[in-house]
C-alpha cells in the first residue's frame, strides 16, 4: 500500500494498492473520523483482495474511495 506507486513499481512490488498521501496514507485528518475510517477500511479490504488475486505482472488494484 503506497502513495508513490511509481516508486513501488521501480522497487518491484507486484500487488499495489494506492494510498492517499505521504504523511497520512490511510486517513486525511482534515476529513471527519467516519470518512477516514471508511477509506481505511475500504483500502485495506482492497489489499486483502489483492492478496487472494492471481496476477501475471505488476498490478495496481483499483480503489473506490
Amino acid at each position: 500500500m503506497a502513495n508513490l506507486i511509481p516508486v513501488a513499481k521501480t522497487v518491484g512490488a507486484n500487488r499495489m494498492v494506492p494510498t492517499i498521501s505521504i504523511p497520512y496514507p490511510l486517513g486525511d485528518p482534515s476529513t471527519p473520523e467516519k470518512e477516514q475510517w471508511k477509506l481505511r477500511y475500504h483500502r485495506v479490504g482492497v489489499a486483502l483482495t489483492a492478496l487472494e488475486t492471481p496476477i501475471e505482472e505488476q498490478t495496481v488494484f483499483e480503489v473506490r474511495i
Binding site: P23, Y24, P25, L26, P29, W37, R40, R43, V44
Partner: peptide, 15 residues
C-alpha cells in the same frame, strides 16, 4: 502530525 495523532493511518491495525 497525522501519524502521531493516529498511527493507524500508517499501520492500519484497526481496519
Amino acid at each position: 502530525a497525522a501519524a502521531d495523532t493516529n498511527p493507524n493511518r500508517v499501520v492500519p491495525l484497526d481496519a
